[in-house]
Amino acid sequence: MRRLKNIFRLGVKELWSLARDPVMLILIVYVFTFSIYTAATAVPETLHNAPIAIVDEDASPLSGRIVSAFYPPYFAPPQRITLSEMDAGMDSGAYTFVLNIPPDFQRDVLAGRNPEIQLNIDATRMSQAFSGNVYVQQIVMAEVNEFVRRYRGGDVLPVDLALRARFNPTLERSWFGALVEVINSVTMLSLILTGAALIREREHGTIEHLLVMPVTPGEIMVAKVWSMGLVVLVAATLSLLLVVRGWLQVPIEGSIPLFLAGASLCLFAMTSLGIFMATLARSMPQFGLLLMLTLMPLQMLSGGLTPRESMPELVQNVMLIAPTTHFVDLSQAILYRGAGIEVVWKQFLALLVIGTVLFVLSLARFRKTISQMA
């Protein structure tokens, strides 16, 4: 009971220290609110409201059909400009695409002369230019073919492909971006808060006060783990309920308590890793550099942004020792597909084993650091 009281009181001390750190509080609020909103809404379709202008030198029914074929959400309503305005508009960046329909275009098409349409593209807007030129070609060719045939239709294919998009029927990217950012935020803040808590003790000189108290290094470390993990867990819960489900209107299919249970195991592992990194660093700038070297590979190679199946087999096998890999797997299974414990128990077990190993290693390193300071 005395050990439990020490752990509880030391954890409360960590919470009070965090409450008196306005920078960390602002970081927590920002990461679980505006950062998630930005990640969800700043990943639109590759081609979204692309600005396009059309130089219609033909003024025929066919050119009118082509002009009316460009509309949101892929393209902004096309602006009709003259040939003399085309270069100036491209130079100023007003248009990504400018389509120049030459004179007598309809007459040449009906006569079978294979006329050419000039498509000018602002290639500095790389993502829109890369996919947009294909869209423009398909739209123009479809309108020309339908005009020549005098009816809308196409060849009947021998195979009928029935597409069913599961878990995200409308293919809304904000659903993916919001939940992925929550997962990444849990990983990032668990490292930052625990590492900063230990370095803050060293910089303020309060670690020496703890050394003369009747507490063990294990109690100090467990207190930091549960207190900082609790802060991240509460922030993640509020973010899922208020920001993701409330503000962004993203449906969550699975059990939030089950997700939080998995997040708790991930926090156990990541907070232990954060303390280990803090024992290696001597100041917050050094810890920040270590964080960059650690956090970016964990987030990029864990399967959150890119499916692990598309990575080299060596990378897939190496990342199995990272807690974020299993956390991403169970989070996507629960939040996206509504999986139960019978599906994700392997990821839970892996997180428990990895967390235990990291905790033991971090505790050994922490004891060594404490003994050197004493």
Rank of each mutant, 00 (worst) to 15 (best):
Arg113Glu: 13
Gln137Ile: 09
Asn317Lys: 15
Phe176Leu: 09
Leu211Val: 13
Gly64His: 15
Thr356Trp: 12
Pro169Ser: 00
Ala76Pro: 15
Leu298Ser: 04
Val12Ala: 12
Gly205Tyr: 03
Leu290Met: 04
Ser302Ala: 02
His326Met: 04
Ala269Cys: 09
Ile101Val: 04
Leu305Tyr: 01
Ile36Val: 11
Ile54Cys: 09
Val156Arg: 10
Met228Ala: 00
Arg107Ile: 11
Ala322Ile: 12
Leu10Thr: 01
Ile54Leu: 10
Gly355Arg: 08
Gly355His: 05
Asp56Met: 03
Leu179Met: 12
Leu242Asn: 04
Lys224Met: 00
Val55Ser: 10
Ile101Asn: 00
Arg367Ile: 14
Met292Leu: 08
Leu361Ser: 15
Pro214Asp: 00
Ala281Arg: 08
Gln299Asn: 11
Glu57Tyr: 04
Ser63Leu: 05
Glu85Pro: 12
Glu116Asp: 08
Met373Glu: 00
Ile121Cys: 15
Val109Gly: 00
Val186Tyr: 05
Met90Ala: 00
Ser239Arg: 06
Leu25Trp: 07
His326Thr: 06
Asp160Glu: 12
Pro323Trp: 05
Ile81His: 05
Val360Phe: 13
Leu179Lys: 07
Leu119Met: 08
Ala50Cys: 10
Gln249Met: 02
Arg282Tyr: 01
Phe348Ser: 13
Gly132Cys: 11
Leu230Ile: 01
Leu330Thr: 06
Leu295Tyr: 06
Val29Met: 01
Pro61Met: 15
Phe276Gln: 01
Leu361Pro: 13
Asn184Gln: 15
Ala236Ser: 13
Ser63Gln: 15
Arg308Ile: 03
Gly254Cys: 01
Thr294Pro: 11
Arg245Ile: 08
Leu320Tyr: 04
Phe130Gln: 13
Ser302Gln: 01
Val134His: 06
Thr237Gln: 04
Met277Lys: 15
Leu157Thr: 11
Ser272Met: 10
Ala235Thr: 08
Tyr151Thr: 04
Arg107Gln: 08
Gln316Asn: 12
Ala364Cys: 05
Ile183Asn: 09
Leu161Gly: 12
Leu351Asp: 15
Arg65Val: 09
Asn184Cys: 11
Arg164Ala: 12
Ile220Gly: 01
Arg149Lys: 04
Val353Thr: 14
Leu320Gly: 05
His209Leu: 14
Pro297Arg: 02
Asn6Glu: 08
Cys266Asp: 02
Asn114Val: 01
Met1Lys: 14
Gly64Phe: 15
Thr271His: 03
Asn6Ala: 15
Thr41Cys: 08
Leu301Ala: 08
Leu99Ser: 01
Asn49Arg: 06
Gln372Phe: 10
Val250Arg: 06
Phe32Pro: 00
Leu240Gly: 03
Val31Asp: 13
Ile199Ser: 12
Phe97Leu: 10
Ala263Trp: 01
Ala196Lys: 14
Ala88Phe: 03
Gly338Phe: 03
Ser17Ala: 10
